[in-house]
Each structure stands twice: as structure tokens, then as C-alpha cells.
Design a protein around this nucleic acid. Structure first.
Lengths: 225, 225
DNA sequence: ACCTGAACACCGTTCAAGT
DNA sequence: ACCTGAACACCGTTCAAGT
């Protein structure tokens, strides 16, 4: 990563993301990233207006890694399910950085493309323009929060530290008075850590999609004429 | 706020929340809050272990302001709707601080009470313990993200600055190539700002609740024996 | 065009000291 | 018990200068 002739913008973004993955977003500092490239902090300002710009670039890179399936002839909600699964996979690869997408998804090109795609599918589902706008933004941030608030998700690279924090959380929940928090105590295991990631994300997506389908919409004309 | 004999913990939390409301979470610094109380930064460390502790107290205050309706005999999803509406109202009063609840809702007492209530209602709805744990945490963070990513929500107290940013966002969306982003351009108004908060939140809640109701669950015995 | 070096205005937090 | 004061190790960012 170090000892390059010229500082490469994409490399900088990559190592910023790597730092976030390993130690969390707070560990991503201009000075730290500069050091990783053997360069003065100010050198980064050739490529980014400020720290916010660097983080925005990280967010864009995250979305850019999303593999969006091609449109086909299946019902809109099935296609939407595949699109959201693709986004979810990209986010799950970088849970510490996923929160960056809560700021302004449409600030980047891939973000705009994603929103466009979702709005198009919602329109097929019979949503008006305004309905799709409100709902589309909610759908995306819901994916983000599914990832960043996955029960007991690891905040660092260190598996031992992660295990320890899961145990601590579980012990704390189990030490609560069962008379006051019966359901919390009973669910301590599942609240302290994600017992099944597959079940968690499948359930979250199912809930989201079925919520979307049962949302009242104007009756829509057949799109596939 | 200033010129008190003894530094009051609750007053400190209140002014931290006030700063967040007015200028955003980044403006909340130990030094700034201390100054508001005419006191040295270090004086705050009598009441909070560190800055994280102060922010956790702000998060707790937010939840503590929630008015939870008493349990009654209506179906679980109607009661849940009222609970979530109550939480949503509390969050909407402090959108800049709402994001604090993404960290660890169950760290505070009111957070635990809220989760307990939701788990109880989901159990009534036929969810197993593990299902309720997964779904309950998602429900809460969904409320948070509905608030913090409300389209075009104000980030500062200043209404002029807010108007300006809405116009800028709208103009940017309208300047996009309609051939590439037809739906985004068509929805520019609704994407740049929330045309109707009532519709936005009503729709979000409806989607969430109907998603919950259609989630597959084991058939449940009648609870009201 | 690209990077450096020194400086500035901020942070959170420590430690020892005051009353 | 409660607060101060000075200091430390960090930040992001400015500006002027180097090549």
C-alpha cells in the first residue's frame, strides 16, 4: 500500500475502507490514511475537498461494489427482492462503513442508479411518483440499519474481543430481574448475538417486501403490454 | 442554564440535547457543554465516564420522553402501532439526536422497558422467542431511520439554510439526464424534501406493521383465556 | 502539478492540585 | 465532594513554500 510514486485516489479510498473494516469508522482519520500511504496529511486534499469528501468516496465505493441484476419479466416484487439482496450483500461485506449511506445516498452516481432502479420497480408496483419517493428512500435505509444493528455484530476485527463483548451483553441481560423483563431475559441469547444471520436477513427482507406489497396503491395498468 | 451552585447531571444532558437539536450531534462537545454551564470541561467527568457516556445519557433521555400507552385488550398489532407511534413522536422531536439510539438501545432502562414491551406484543402475535428477538430489534431501528433519513430533513435550526439546501438538492436532481434517471427526475420534488410528513410517517408505519403481520409465524394459542 | 512543513484552532482526556 | 489548571496526545485544516 505504501511507497508509490503518485498518490492514487482509489487506493486512498480502499485503505480508508480497510481501516473502517478493521477498527471502525472512528479510526478513519486523514492523518492515519495518509500515513498508510507514506504521505503527509495534506497530500490527501488533492483528491478530496475534506474528510467528509473522503468518507463520501468510501460510501460510493461500497455501493459501486453492488451487483445489480438485469431487469427481466418477473413480477416487480421478485425483481426488487433480488436488487435488495444484492445491496444487502455489498453492505454486509463492510458493516462498519455501511452507516455512511445514511447521509445522502443520492450524492453518488451508483446511489442514483440504485434509487432509479428502485423507483422504477415501485412504479411497476403501482405506486405514484410521490409514494415511490417516500417509500424508496425508506427501503434503502432499512437495509442499512439491518446491517449496522444486527444483534451482537462485531465492531472490530478481533474475534476474541467480539466473543467477550457478546458474553458480557448476554450476562447483563440474564442478570436482569425476570419479573420486570421476562421476555428480554428469555430472549437473552438471541438479543446478545445473531443466532442465525441467514434467518435474520431473510426475515428482514421478507418483512420489508411483504410490507411493500400490502401497501395501498392505486390500481395499475398492465406494464407488459 | 449557567451560574448554578452545583452542576446538575440532568441539566447537562438537557443542554447537550439542546445543542444537538440546534446544530447537530457534531456540535456536542464536552468543552461546549461545559461552557454552557460556566464550568471547566473536567467538571463533567464527575457525572459521566466519558463523552460516550454523555451521549448515552442523551439517548436515554430521548427514550424516557416516550409516552407508552397502557396494555389493553385490543389485538397485538393495534397496540404495537400505538407503542411505535409514541416512540416515533419522541424521536421526531429530536431528529438530530435520534441516531444515538442506533448504538445500543438496551443499554438504558427505558430502552429495556421498550424492548420488553415490543417482545411481549410480538409473542402475542405468535412469534417464537428467537423470532421476536430478531424482529423486535429491527422494528426499533426502522423507526430511528425513518426519522433520521426523512427526505430533506433540516440539519440545523436555521430555516433559511434549510430552504437553501432543499432548493439545491432539488435543482441538482432536476439537472440530471432524464434519459438515464427518468424516475429520479420525475420525483425530484418528493426526493428533495418531505412533501407531507404525515403521509411519510403514516406510510412508513403502515408498511412496517403490515410487514410484521404477514410474517410467517407458528400458529399461536389464544392469549386472552 | 503534486507534495511538504509549520502552524492554528480545535478535540477528549490525564493528572495533580485546590477548596 | 466537587471543581480547577495546566498539560498531553490527538484531530481537521490554513497557508506559504518547495520541486
Amino acid at each position: 500500500m505504501a511507497a508509490q510514486k503518485r498518490l492514487n485516489r482509489d487506493d486512498v479510498v480502499t485503505s480508508a475502507l480497510a481501516v473502517a473494516d478493521a477498527e471502525g469508522l472512528d479510526a478513519v482519520t486523514i492523518r492515519r490514511v495518509a500515513q498508510l500511504h507514506g504521505v503527509t496529511p495534506m497530500a490527501l486534499y488533492r483528491h478530496f475537498p475534506d474528510k467528509e469528501g473522503l468518507l463520501a468516496a468510501v460510501a460510493e465505493k461500497l455501493l459501486a461494489e453492488t451487483r445489480l441484476p438485469e431487469p427481466d419479466d418477473r413480477p416487480w416484487h421478485e425483481q426488487l427482492g433480488d436488487v435488495l439482496t444484492g445491496v444487502l450483500d455489498a453492505l454486509r461485506a463492510h458493516p462498519n462503513a455501511a452507516g455512511l449511506l445514511l447521509s445522502d445516498i443520492m450524492a453518488s452516481d451508483p446511489g442514483l442508479a440504485l434509487v432509479e432502479r428502485i423507483l422504477a420497480l415501485l412504479a411497476e408496483g403501482g405506486h405514484t411518483v410521490d409514494e415511490a419517493a417516500m417509500t424508496g428512500s425508506q427501503v434503502l435505509v432499512t437495509l442499512v440499519t439491518m446491517v449496522i444493528s444486527e444483534p451482537g455484530r462485531a465492531l472490530t476485527d478481533d474475534p476474541e474481543a467480539h466473543e467477550a463483548s457478546v458474553r458480557a451483553r448476554r450476562a447483563r441481560l440474564l442478570s436482569l430481574p425476570p419479573s420486570r423483563y421476562p421476555h428480554v431475559v428469555a430472549a437473552a441469547d438471541a438479543l446478545a448475538e445473531c443466532t442465525s444471520e441467514e434467518a435474520y436477513y431473510h426475515r428482514g427482507l421478507t418483512m420489508l417486501l411483504s410490507g411493500l406489497r400490502t401497501l395501498p396503491t392505486a390500481p395499475h395498468p398492465s406494464v407488459h403490454a
